[in-house]
Design a protein around this nucleic acid. Structure first.
Length: 562
RNA sequence: UGGGGUGUAGCCAAGCGGUAAGGCACGGGACUUUGACUCCCGCAUUCGUAGGUUCGAACCCUGCCACCCCAGCCA
């Protein structure tokens, strides 16, 4: 069955294949370059798929390289978390683990080479002045007055920058390109800046740090990367990337290929916003089940298989796009439906009494763990006089096509008998607190009498055996559609706290107490096994979006005290 | 406005001169010991748009339109 699902090709693989065929490279070597400034989210799963997946596809290597050239934004916590998440997704870095910062020596040497070759110069312009002289989208920039310094002077100045003789921002090393270039990125971009700040990998060794545009091509070339995949916004940087590789004199020339990053409907994907949610306590951490981080999705019950399948189905292309959340939901339902053992539990119990069943007597039943996979075995459950069903599976005044329990109606209790609802018991307030039924004793599942068909089948638990637990139902933090439009109006400012939070759905955690589950669930060693308590346990919200409501057993499943 | 990109169904996405794949969503039906799952069937006479070339165009050419990215000493 699995192999009938063919691996979808994409334009990147076509390019790589062409390079291989044309002999431009003998094998494939990619790299995954996360910046350790946050945890990985679902969007990064696409980066991983594209980079590690491409290496995998061509039997090549993929390096994991932390892109840590800016100590101001990066932390050790994230370099650990990121590795764990990549591993969890089932990818590895068979090409090795690297840090961009471990190439600082090489970057420095190459910067001096550029100076000696007349390809770079030290510029003393203050930041604002430099911006002003860069020109605009329509007007060319002007040459810096420092552009024609001698090699000796540039070398001396650059060495002093390194020696720490100047304060932050006093000078910068710039590429000597073309201030009139229509591509603004080519108007003498900065290569090195002064930043007196310790780095989480190199400590106090450096007070100048290379810019991404200078460091990245060098790192790629040094590691023998053949294909360097990145997102669309770097397209305009490619000429600069190629220039750096060229003037540094590398014999090999990595090819940069850009693709569209992943966007998901209603999902906040910006690290800046996610960080805000964490730092201001709106969620309990980067791995909160409401977060779109890989760690959060994992806790919400997503499997790596579902996420990988989703990424692959969403495709890799160059058009900006927003993938429908429904596709992700489809993928997790499909995978869990295939692999999760079935177990019965009720989240909001409603007492059911089988009036024609003798008090104190029980019948042992054998229930399959998976309807399509007998090899997954069976488990036992006991049927007795008092049971619990889901409150929402009963309707006193059924509307429309309601096939579940209703007064006078018949329904099958999964794996047991067909029962008829005879009577409804209410409390003073008029709430239904009990339903009294008679069972058709000839209709036991798998018996001769089991052939009779009724419209509905319900899950249930035996009251005497049932184990109470607390359930937390998590829903992702989603934006409302209007917010997305507002967002599109594009202003750079982070929306004010109130605004931002107001755009996310509230009540994203529902805590239920008094839930009842089959006793065999108490044998659970880890929660993962029982994420799918009840197949079909998902429902639509007001907007018609379907979510899995997965009970996070690991934290919330609390077997009753013995 | 200069430069770089992208426009194929509600959302993704194949297609590369020979007459519009597939998935999600949606609608209808069958099946069903959970209305799930599964299974059928339906869902673009048309590819942003207007012309041109061609026996033949989503694919080639020209003009126009829309959207995204670039003016950090962020990545």
């Amino acid at each position: 069955m699995e192999d009938s699902k063919s691996v979808r090709s994409n334009f990147i693989w076509d390019f790589v294949q062409q390079d291989l065929d044309a002999g431009r490279c003998q094998s494939v070597h990619t790299r995954l370059p996360p910046e350790p400034n946050g945890w990985l989210h679902i969007g990064h799963a696409k980066n991983i798929y594209v980079n590690a997946g491409t290496a995998e596809r061509f039997g090549g290597l993929c390096n994991l390289r932390f892109d840590d050239t800016n100590p101001a934004k990066e932390e050790q916590e994230f370099v650990d978390g990121i590795q764990a998440d990549i591993r969890w997704l089932g990818y590895d870095w068979n090409g090795g683990l690297f840090f961009g910062s471990s190439y600082f020596d090489e970057c420095y040497e190459l910067a001096e080479k550029l100076i000696r070759d007349g390809n770079a110069y030290v510029c003393d312009l203050p930041q604002e002045e430099m911006r002003r002289m860069r020109g605009t989208l329509t007007q060319p920039g002007q040459n810096s007055p420092y552009r024609d310094r001698s090699v000796e002077e540039n070398l001396d100045l650059f060495r002093r920058m390194r020696a720490g003789e100047y304060p932050n921002g006093a000078r910068v090393l710039r590429a000597k390109l073309d201030m009139a270039s229509p591509n603004i990125n080519m108007r003498d971009p900065a290569l090195y800046r002064i930043l007196h700040m310790p780095h989480h990998q190199t400590g106090d060794k450096w007070c100048i740090y290379p810019m991404y545009d200078f460091a990245h091509p060098i790192q790629d070339a040094l590691e023998g990367i053949t294909h360097s995949m990145c997102s669309l916004e770097y397209e305009a940087h490619r000429p600069l990337y190629d220039w750096v590789v060229e003037v540094c004199g590398f014999p090999n020339h990595p090819r940069q290929i850009e693709y569209a990053r992943l966007n998901l409907t209603r999902t906040v994907m910006s690290k800046r916003y996610l960080r805000k949610l964490v730092e201001e306590g709106y969620v309990r951490g980067w791995d909160d089940p409401r977060m779109p981080t890989l760690a959060g999705l994992r806790r919400r019950g997503y499997t790596k298989e579902a996420i990988r399948d989703f990424i692959e189905r969403a495709g890799v292309a160059k058009a900006d796009s927003v993938v429908d959340l429904a596709l992700l939901e489809h993928c997790i339902r499909e995978h869990l439906g295939e692999v999760a053992p079935r177990a019965m539990a009720v989240l909001r119990p409603l007492k059911v009494t089988i009036t024609n069943w003798p008090e104190g007597e029980t019948k042992a039943l054998t229930l399959e763990n998976h309807p399509a996979h007998p090899e997954m075995g069976t488990h036992e459950a006991r049927f007795g006089r008092t049971l619990y069903i889901e409150q929402e599976d009963f309707m006193e005044n059924p509307t429309g096509k309601f096939f579940r329990m209703k007064p006078g109606g018949e329904v099958r209790l999964k794996g047991a008998y067909i029962v008829r609802c005879d009577e409804v018991v209410k409390d003073e307030a008029g709430n239904v607190v009990e339903v009294r039924c008679t069972a058709d004793l000839t209709s036991l599942s798998c018996s001769e009498g089991a052939g009779r068909k009724v419209k509905g089948t319900l899950h249930w638990v035996n009251a005497d055996d049932a184990v109470p637990f607390e359930a937390r139902l998590y829903e992702p933090l989603l934006r409302d559609e209007d917010a997305i439009e507002e967002e599109a109006e594009g202003d750079e400012a982070v929306p004010d706290k109130k605004d931002f939070i107001a755009r996310l759905n509230p009540n994203s955690i529902t805590v239920l107490t008094g839930c009842m589950a089959e006793p065999w669930l108490t044998d659970a060693k880890d929660g993962d096994k029982f994420q799918f308590l009840r197949l079909g346990y998902f429902c639509k919200d007001q907007d018609g979006f379907v979510f899995n409501r997965v009970v996070e057993l690991k934290d919330s499943f609390k077997p009753a005290a013995k």
